[in-house]
Nucleic acid binder design. Sequence first.
RNA 1: GGCCCCAUCGUCUAGCGGUUAGGACACCGGCCUCUCACGUCGGGAACAUGGGUUCAAUUCCCAUUGGGGUCACCA
Length: 479
Amino acid sequence: MSKPRLRFAPSPTGYLHIGGVRTALFNWLWARKTGGTFILRIEDTDQERSTEASRAVIFESMKWLGIDWDEGPSAGGEHGPYTQMERLPLYKQKADELVAAKKAFRCYCTKAELDAQREALKAKDPKAQFKYPGTCRTRTDQPDLPYVVRFMTDRSGSVRYVDKVFGEITTPNIEQQDFVLLRSDGVPLYNFGAVVDDMMMGVTLVARGRDHMINTPPQIMLYEAFGVKPPEFAHLPMMLAPSGEKLSKRHGAVSVSEYSDTGYAPNAVLNYLARFGWSHGDQEVFSKEELTQAFSWEACGRGDGKFDAKKFLAINHEHLKTDKLMPSDEYATRTLPFLEKRGVTGTDAAALKRALYTIRDRATTFVQAAEMLDPFFREPPVMDDKAAEKFLVKDAAPRITGFRDALAKASEWTEAALEASVNAWLAESGLEMKLVGQPVRVALMGRTASPSLFQVLFVLGRETSLARLTRAAETAASR
RNA sequence: GGCCCCAUCGUCUAGCGGUUAGGACACCGGCCUCUCACGUCGGGAACAUGGGUUCAAUUCCCAUUGGGGUCACCA
């Protein structure tokens, strides 16, 4: 059997939705796992809503996520162009073929006429569903008027297919109507454009959201009309908002760019999305490689799910904590821009990398990492007024100084030596770390929460540490 | 409403006839502790309902209920 060919076909009508990414991901995973081909196709036939900007956003987001395409815009391929508005002659040609074969026909009914009929029917019976009455089916004249091309739907029998996740699906054809293939302006409608493209691009498996399930029977009819074997289909359960509604911006971050902006790791995004509607035993955390290894359609669930931002964050945290999932070089590189955005300049990824171990367990996002790392790289550190007021008090001055002097006496500037020296001083002066910790922390970092003090001291270095302590002791003494 | 689809803790899910129904997130406690975290230990928490099939149903079948999708010259 030849290698599978899969595709992701977004419409450039806004940001790249996290739900769309999930279907892209599943397609991509299967292509990568099987050594198949992953195609990116831009479905921009809705000229009202499609924009060049959102087309760019799709590329940018896909790139950030690391979902690469073998064929598509900029990648090229033998079946291009990969943007629907550049394929108009192809759709026209295919539509003409069907018309010539009497499997489609020109319909001169106007939208207004049809809408009126629909309204009239609704008025008579609110429950009735309007279907195109077949007005132009047998029409043989070809007036010089705008027309759409409609499919000559055989409304007897039913369409059956075996979905790779839902199993056997049967839909009675009586539900269908003579649906429109080509609009009067020559632009194809979704079902026609998708089928022509999938057919010509040799797509063997169409995986998409469950909201497209309804489109599958008419699409299969089209394949049959063309005498082409339909591809396999796999529908994915929907990702809903916590409320059970369709997930939208109303429910928080749903676009990929929001996750890159708030400091998520691309692979963590993939991990969360993959584990949504798919599972692999009890495993929750996956590297990208593990995902491609383990993925299968059989292990996909069928029930819709609700998006859980907290679990998403937790998965991201897990990735940031684990060096195998997020190597420190990459961590530093990804954090640097966030630090710069905070106004911390004059540092670099190498310096960041050396400080990373102090915060790796704690930061849940790169934004948070930058926030925690900030006082290491800003001179002087931002002083939290409330913290200073509470801990840099007169009584604390001698303790800060004592701590400072103990450090100065340390045999070497290592965490162990510093701690030993401080412990000796504590024992000798009868003080407890509990009483010294917070004033010193505020002195060093300007805030009440930080990594372990000895780690802080080590990363800061002798000179900076002693200077910050001296300065803080003076402040405290002057209160 | 018609058609299609779905149904295990609050959430994501494991389970593919016989289990004390497992894990993760979240939540609540304890421990650890120089702060905040991390970590660790423990806790509460689910098979929608009713019929079948079967020696035995969370698991198979059918209803009911509930949820979702979709009914365009949008995708």
